[in-house]
Design a protein around this nucleic acid. Structure first.
Lengths: 230, 230
DNA sequence: AAGAATTGCCACAGCTTTGCCACAGTTTAA
DNA sequence: TTAAACTGTGGCAAAGCTGTGGCAATTCTT
């Protein structure tokens, strides 16, 4: 799906220029002459990325940045004619993801916009990445390699799949149902303790190789990976 | 958990400087005099963020960047003495998340490092809209995390469900019947003091972790959450 | 085809949760 | 003031959940 980008700058030439470059790259762009209009539009329909000039009539870019960040995770780039250390630092600290000073190269802006979307992709859709880590455990899902402290050990297909799923979702607890659905591909409701069995075997193997990562039980729910004390 | 940062630069002064600043901010830093050493260490134990100089003896920073990006999602910042548009653009395009030119302000580097971690956090952790708060209590219904003042504590399934319901309806008092119907899924009329029991245990747990939010009884009706404190 | 590996299931033991009870303390209403 | 209704508390036992070892069916290997 095409990414939607909002742009606020009081200089019409700059708006046109950036708009052109971004559109050429396949982005959907909406530009605004001031921050208030952008904010209003954003509250109506959030964009995937926002580019804000600091000095604008009405609410300044930094305030708009804070307000957007208060209610959204959207990517934000701040652009400013003022170039001193303090401005950059406050700009970034206030919640923007990048800060560029005018005059800037449109090409560099393009590169940075793409870098931000790439980062978003890596962080969220990251299933394309095959190397997973948890504590001293490294699993390469592509080559089916599992290593602890550099020494390799074996996992069966199911064990590997379960481990990979837990590692891909290591920030949260995963329910047994979710595992049965996504690792076992059972669409229907089943009452099975298959998950417990695989976890049982995984725990034994991980302990045998002194892996710092542990599979913890979440009572009445499922499991959660813990990296284990550093 | 402390973030691990790898840093490669052939200038010992710069290594020391950056190392000092990052350490002061609570990061765990390991610095290397060239890219090859860093890459070797990274393959052994991946870091959370990598800072690469471009011009170094041995493999240059850009190649190291590409190699790391090939096998990992780690955050990468490229730092270079060369400052022209083309360098910046290729640097960012090759897979780094940010590009800074020397000489740079250590404070700005700090700000950008933190911005990258913040983005990572936004993309992975806080992404879900299931975060509920009441006083100093934070419950993430999706990850089943319950925290008071940042320290996590455990809730049983029923306790969690009841707490979430109360927090979702924190503006009003909730009757016992409503709780039995929506949390216990009892369709029929029952005379049960199950709610009181769970509330009893919840109160004990909340008090044990010095939670400012309290479950208040509404006489002859049910319960109501109060944020407490302030 | 025989042997090995994998994997789901079972049964049992041990632990946690949770609803219930009895009783004491509190609030409401007559 | 008193009785009735309601809530807080500790204990308890049934129900539910998890860890474990063993086992059998299936699949993979040789």
């Amino acid at each position: 799906m095409r990414k939607l980008i909002y742009l606020a700058d009081d200089d019409e030439n700059i708006r046109g220029l950036i708009n052109m470059f971004l559109s050429n790259e396949g982005f959907e762009v909406k530009s605004f002459a001031n921050g208030d209009d952008l904010l209003a539009a954003f509250l109506q329909k959030p964009a995937d990325l926002v580019i804000l000039d600091i000095m604008m009539p009405g609410t300044d870019g930094l305030s708009v940045c804070t307000q957007i960040r208060n209610c959204s995770n959207t990517l934000i780039i701040i652009v400013s004619a003022r170039d001193n250390e303090m401005d950059r630092i406050t700009g970034i600290t206030l919640g923007s993801d990048d800060y560029m000073t005018k005059p800037f190269s449109p090409m560099e802006l393009m590169a940075r916009v793409k870098a931000l979307f790439r980062r978003l992709e890596l962080d969220t859709g990251g299933s394309s990445r095959h190397i997973l880590t948890a504590g001293n455990l490294i699993i390469n899902a592509a080559t089916r390699d599992a290593k602890v402290d550099g020494s390799q050990f074996d996992l069966t297909p199911t064990e590997l799949a379960l481990m990979v799923y837990l590692m891909q979702n290591s920030t949260r607890a995963v329910s047994r149902d979710e595992l049965l659905k996504n690792v076992w591909k059972f669409d229907f409701e089943v009452d099975s303790r298959a998950t417990d069995d695989v976890v049982k075997r995984l725990r034994k193997k991980l302990a045998a190789v002194k892996c710092s990562a542990k599979i913890e039980s979440v009572w009445g729910f499922g499991f959660k990976l813990s990296e284990g004390g550093k």
